[in-house]
Amino acid sequence: MTTPTSTPVPPHADRSSEGAPRTAAKRHSTRAARRREGRAGFSMVAPALILLLLFLVIPVLLAFGLSFTNARLISPNPPRFVGLDNFVRAFTADPVFVRSMINTFVFAAVIVPVQAGLGLFLAVLVNQKIRGVTAFRVIFFIPVVTSIVVVSILWRFMYQSDGLINSMIDTITFGAWQGMAWLNDPSTALGAIIVLSIWQAVGFHMLIWLSGLQTIPEELYEAARMDGASARQQFANVTWPGLRSTMVFVLVTITIAALGLFVQIDVMTQGGPVNSTSTLVYHAVRKGYRELETGYGATISLIFFVLVLTIALIQRRLTRDKD
């Protein structure tokens, strides 16, 4: 019968790819099978596709539409079309927006390498064949399964000037440390949130690195050891090259999560002190929801989407070119 080739062939290329010796009947049954496959494929993807359209694409399009209006969450006046006014306002008349954009990028620029690196470090640690290692895997993953709202409340306690973080530093430095309220100082608040965010999420990326590590065949290590490679050389020549595709995945997921930073800010600092922790998503929610300026909030969201998409495409291009 018809045997589909393993390289994908677009359905419309049927005719040209079919050889002349085939009989009409065969050609017909091939086309019928293709049609059946097309229909089956579409109907299997349809439930997910419809749900994504209904609950993600349509709301996003609604938000895009709103961003060109002065729509209010609460108002007796109907929304007016205002063209690009909201966009002009964001870039010229809203210093908090600009600051939020900078904060978002700073957060991502620190989180992406540090969390990826620390995750890899943990993964290498727990990938050893030594007793009790599973227990440590579980412990490092526990913050991931804890609600970020709960985590933020706990850490807010710990960051107080008389809180646990300060008393620990105090103990380590034998009392030389003057306690400070980490979340109340514009120069430390974002750093404090970065630390907490890494603590919460690094276990997840540890696990992903671990899955990458475990796909590297043991024989490669054995061969390297035969050649007298040190542990460091093994890492550089066997482990790291074997983790390429894992790395791409880790970088992309951390970047997307980091750019969307919201809950920690909402629970812990509300963007303060002096805007030092306001992020794009937080600012969009503050304007669009809390301050009821739905249209303007939607504008910030739209700018955010465009930025993230651009970054994602750049990342894709960069990681692809090296292949």
């Binding site: 109340n184 514009p186 963007g271 303060g272 002190p273 002096v274």
Partner: peptide, 9 residues
């Protein structure tokens, strides 16, 4: 927001 910012310097 303004009052908090002033409090923070």
């Amino acid at each position: 927001k303004a009052a908090k910012d002033i409090m923070n310097g």
